[in-house]
């Protein structure tokens, strides 16, 4: 697999007339994971969207080698379609194979997405992310709505992704059980 890299240089983010954080710099290489920590409203999701190129940084810039995949609070699955079809849409867009991690969705493939619970939708979004084949995973609160069992499975999937040389950035207010996890607390970057 080709190497991948995600680097941030002196990032600052402003929402409205409020500076959320500044001076965020780091560099991640294949196999590494970063935990973005901090209380609600400190700008974890905004930072994720800056990495994803969906939001312009107020200052600084981001460099990445390797495709990005983002999982946030919106699963981007057609709610009226059965889960299997909704996931197949993204598999076709990504021209990807079956997901490596299945997240226990086999029995739900015929169920329309709108009948799924919060946790089941979260698992579906993670399965979409895992199937995309992207090297850099941006996970915004990946454990929200997941019970202990599936929370552990999601973390195991992240470890498997890292073992294959991928990068994971995880914004979460929950503690994570990942090996050699680097932590970036946005509290240390308040303006």
């Amino acid at each position: 697999m080709q190497p991948c890299r995600l680097a941030a240089y002196d990032l600052a983010c402003r929402r409205g007339d409020r500076l959320l954080f500044r001076g965020v710099s780091f560099e991640l290489h294949g196999g590494e994971a970063l935990h973005l920590a901090g209380p609600n409203g400190i700008g974890k999701s905004s930072l994720m969207r800056i990495f994803a190129g969906l939001l312009r940084a107020y200052n600084g810039h981001v460099e990445h080698e390797g495709a990005l995949a983002l999982s946030d609070e919106r699963p981007a699955l057609d709610t009226h379609r059965p889960l299997g079809e909704a996931l197949a849409f993204w598999r076709q867009v990504d021209r990807a194979g079956e997901a490596r991690a299945d997240f226990g969705l086999e029995d739900l493939l015929d169920v329309p997405v709108r009948y799924l619970s919060t946790g089941q939708r979260k698992r579906a979004a993670l399965a979409r992310l895992a199937a995309s084949g992207a090297r850099i995973w941006l996970l915004d609160e990946p454990l929200n709505g997941l019970d202990t069992h599936w929370g552990a499975s999601a973390q195991a999937a992240i470890e498997a992704h890292r073992a294959l040389g991928g990068i994971a950035v995880i914004a979460s207010h929950q503690p994570l059980q990942l090996q050699k996890l680097r932590t970036l607390s946005l509290l240390e970057h308040l303006p």
């Binding site: 995949a69 983002l70 057609d78």
Partner: peptide
């Protein structure tokens, strides 16, 4: 837009 489709497409360079 609400469901996040446009963000996901943008992320894929579409």
């Amino acid at each position: 837009l609400e469901a996040g489709f446009f963000d996901q497409w943008a992320l894929r360079g579409i």
